[in-house]
Design a protein around this nucleic acid. Structure first.
Lengths: 355, 355
DNA sequence: GATTAACAGTTAAACGATTAACAGCGGCTG
DNA sequence: CAGCCGCTGTTAATCGTTTAACTGTTAATC
């Protein structure tokens, strides 16, 4: 690891110009004569010089980094968000530092602190839960911040981009109702997450309106393996519903695993609406009907808002709700024909013994 | 966005100490009296002070950042790698900057350049293809670099962590052969990727040894939707094999989609071995038999090597090959019983018209 | 009790870039 | 032709830390 890295001075000396000129060549903040520019670029190449971001940043205060904090880098929803944000950031010359809080409030704080140390131009954060960490709130008035996904109500201090969770739940429930389903169980991740609660409420609003009662809810957590166990167990102990509504892609997976383990056929024996829309959901014999979150639009919105804020927009915080859409495929059985003949599957039911 | 951020000087003044002491409190490079430390921490909290990484880095030369470059942040294999690396990095106090080269050599160069601008402590890179970019090679002797996955042969300038691709292919093929399969088609992503070629070779080595001929190979690319179209089309135009061996998780998905689109049943009508082992592969009625890459071990190895290099280890570059394992589940049909009665499905065959 | 050693804190010089202020040099204009 | 402008380039101050060198104090050693 020998040859010391070259600095702007080395380049300047080699090209026979001042360091200021070299800086201008690279930052483009002042025009530089073509011939000189050539010389500088040649010298830089020969020395394999790269501008040192730390020094550049320190002096200019211009960071060109954004921090992205998500609760879980193993959840495809978040990674697809990160992926799209990275693209947008790169297009605008920003680098992104990712951090995962792994659903741990303490880690969230410490990752946030680490991110702030970069003095980033902005921050895009998916909070762990409703309680926005104090550090974020403190920073909000001096640092552009945009929140996503897990945001409750109207955030008072930063823009927030979410989907219309209530509508998403309602839309799914309506679809189930329209196809003759009445006994629905909701596979939620955690009811402590605001968007999950909203989705439940949305579904219940429809079910209540229709039948005077809501859905049963099971919490499966954020890990699909554990969720599968929990749900399989739940299936063993409870009367079987005609349909399941999963509220995240992880719970969708958990439900699917549990159904496979218990050899319950989709959609013959039970119907399912999944959440999110990833390739594996349709790469199956009975493709999943699912609520599709507009991840692209979401990332786009997040980036646009952040750029606006970085650009000095100081209008009051906005909450932007994107609409989901229902991808109707084959995992919901149409019960509306048989519904009159045999109203609903009997509510009381011997537990199905484990396989 | 008003109140200026506080600096080490502000904290020093408020706590009535020198800036050096404040620095010592935060970096821990020199012991500081408990009472003073308290005062400093209190002052820092009151001013919501964070050490400025740019300044810190500039002065100390210590970066505590690693760059991670992958070809595609929408591929779960890479994101699961990133996720695990982020965990390890965080544990050791490093931050990670992610960059995706999106399978584009030019972008790869520019992302690499951006990453190098950080003067990172190290770099973990999954190259786009066999040709390691010149920038990387140039940097290799002054910057710890560890390569992963898409690395051909013995890399002469940096450590490389891969799986034993030949063995992986051979293992999968052996399994197929053992269950009476002879007519195998390999769903590859791109034959221009070294590991893919190796996997094909591994599979062929077994098939040749057994039958004197290898497998047919289809290239499906790195996008599952397009891959699904290509494969569905291929199925329409070619004699149907008894088994498919997919060589990446994306091609596994593509194959599954195509089979679903053509209503071909797994494993009754065709058998499949997938690659990688993600939850969605087993969350189905016929769970997929698949080659499992040890992503955890891989990330662990990558990090360990990088740490060693950062720590000054300058032994010659090593290539580390991890072993895969075959997760036997239900997607490969046992043909060995029927094999004698009806040797193999006829090779020549009218194309199956599209559904 | 003199000499060192160990400790805890301070001072001030870097680190490598950016950029305000300035300088030199035609070319225009009145 | 004086004065000014616009253009390109340079000089030098500066960003917020870290850290080598230093100072002063206390404890340990002979």
């Amino acid at each position: 690891m020998a040859p010391k890295r070259s600095t702007i001075k080395d380049v300047a000396k080699r090209a026979g110009v001042s360091t200021a000129t070299v800086s201008n060549v690279f930052s483009g903040s002042k025009p530089v004569n073509a011939e000189l520019r050539e010389r500088v670029e040649g010298a830089a190449r020969a020395l394999s010089y790269h501008v040192d971001r730390a020094a550049s940043q320190l002096r200019s205060g211009q960071t060109k980094v954004v921090g992205v904090l998500v609760p879980d880098l193993d959840d495809v929803f978040f990674t697809s968000l990160v992926s799209r944000l990275e693209v947008r950031a790169q297009e605008d010359g920003y680098d992104v530092i990712v951090a995962s809080s792994r659903d741990n409030p303490e880690l969230e704080r410490s990752r946030l602190r680490a991110l702030l140390g970069w003095r980033p131009s902005g921050l895009i954060a998916v909070p762990n839960n409703d309680e926005i960490p104090q550090i974020l709130a403190d920073e909000a008035h001096r640092l552009p911040i945009v929140l996503a996904d897990r945001v409750a109500g109207i955030s008072t201090f930063a823009d927030a981009v979410t989907i219309d969770n209530h509508e998403a739940g309602a839309m799914a429930a309506s679809h189930l109702v329209a196809l003759g389903h009445r006994d629905v169980v909701i596979a939620a991740s955690h009811l402590s997450f605001a968007p999950i609660r909203e989705r439940v409420r949305g579904a219940d609003s429809v079910l209540f309106g229709e039948f005077g009662e809501g859905a049963r809810v099971v919490e499966l957590g954020s890990n699909s393996d554990r969720g599968a166990d929990i749900f399989a167990d739940w299936l063993d102990r409870n009367a079987r519903p005609t349909a399941i509504l999963a509220l995240t892609n992880v719970t969708t997976l958990a439900v699917l695993s549990a159904l496979a383990a218990r050899r319950i056929d989709l959609p013959e024996q039970i119907s399912l609406i999944g959440f999110d829309d990833y390739a594996w959901m349709s790469a199956r014999k009975t493709a999943l009907t699912a609520v599709r979150q507009p991840v692209d639009a979401m990332a786009g919105m997040l980036w646009d808002r952040l750029k606006a804020r970085i650009g000095g927009d100081d209008s009051p915080p906005r909450r932007i709700e994107l609409n989901t859409s229902l991808q109707v495929r084959d995992s919901v059985r149409d019960l509306s024909m048989t519904a009159n003949a045999r109203p609903v599957l009997p509510r009381k039911h011997a537990p199905v013994p484990g396989e």
